[in-house]
């Protein structure tokens, strides 16, 4: 579904990604773990064309999207819940969800709204509230829900567990699984919180300073001693 091959990304002179290869197949949950600053967020942003890859190719469902502008990439069916949630704090929950539906036909809106409210019932209760006054967990749910409103086939999630209490993290991962299984949305999940993310994943990659250092099924990586040492014990 998504094939990333040999992608390099630069911020000015700094090379943040140096030849990344990742493949995501339809229907999977693929997890990418890595230390802070490894380039995980950069990879997700590069998929969306902001910043653009300086070398390499990104193919989505047979179409080369490497050079497309961001808004067109999103229109093709890729949505992202970006790092730090980036909800519109001054707008209400409903308005945030409407912003998510920018690229879809207006007649889908009510149906899609029911769908995300079924996944996150708390958002339905809070729909008139200013998004900035939601709790951290609710803001993360809103960020995911907003991304879902564009009817993506591929959902990119950047550290949805960041700064949240374990119970809330569990709840969010449960919904991610539901989105994948029931809504048939392919998920590319970036996490530092490796344990839950690897358990959830069909396959996983490990990133170290802009390169993929390891890959395998979620189970394989969970039991890999190197991964355990670097990302599980003491961390996650």
């Amino acid at each position: 579904m998504l094939a990333i091959s040999g992608v390099h990304t630069h911020y000015g002179n700094i090379e943040a990604l140096s030849g990344v290869d990742v493949e995501i197949r339809s229907g999977e949950i693929v997890t990418l773990i890595g230390a802070n600053g490894a380039g995980k967020s950069t990879l997700l942003m590069t998929i969306c064309g902001n910043p653009r890859a300086s070398r390499g190719r990104i193919i989505f469902e047979g179409q080369d999207i490497t050079r497309l502008p961001t808004h067109q990439i999103v229109g093709l069916g890729i949505a992202q819940a970006p790092e730090g949630r980036r909800i519109f704090a001054r707008m209400s929950v409903m308005e945030n969800l409407q912003m998510g539906a920018t690229t879809t036909k207006p007649e889908y809106f009510d149906h899609d709204l029911d769908r995300v409210f079924a996944l996150f019932p708390i958002l339905k209760e809070r729909r008139g509230q200013r998004a900035g006054t939601l709790s951290g967990g609710e803001q993360q749910m809103l960020s995911i829900a907003r991304a879902l409103m564009s009817r993506p086939r591929l959902l990119l999630l950047d550290e949805p567990s960041l700064g949240l209490a374990p119970l809330v993290v569990k709840q969010i991962f449960r919904v991610v699984k539901e989105i994948n299984e029931r809504e048939r949305v392919t998920v590319f999940l970036v996490e530092q919180n490796a344990f839950h993310a690897l358990r959830l994943a069909h396959r996983a990659y490990v990133m170290v300073t802009g390169r993929i250092s390891m890959s395998g099924t979620g189970r394989e990586l969970l039991s890999n001693p190197e991964v355990r040492l670097a990302y599980l014990e003491g961390g996650g």
């Binding site: 902001n50 808004h71 949505a79 704090a89 707008m91 912003m99 564009s150």
Partner: peptide, 17 residues
């Protein structure tokens, strides 16, 4: 709404298409 959203967070807006 897009105007107001853009004022709040341009990066988020881009990633919403």
């Amino acid at each position: 709404r897009a105007w107001e959203a853009l004022r709040e967070d341009e990066i988020a807006c881009r990633s919403l298409g």
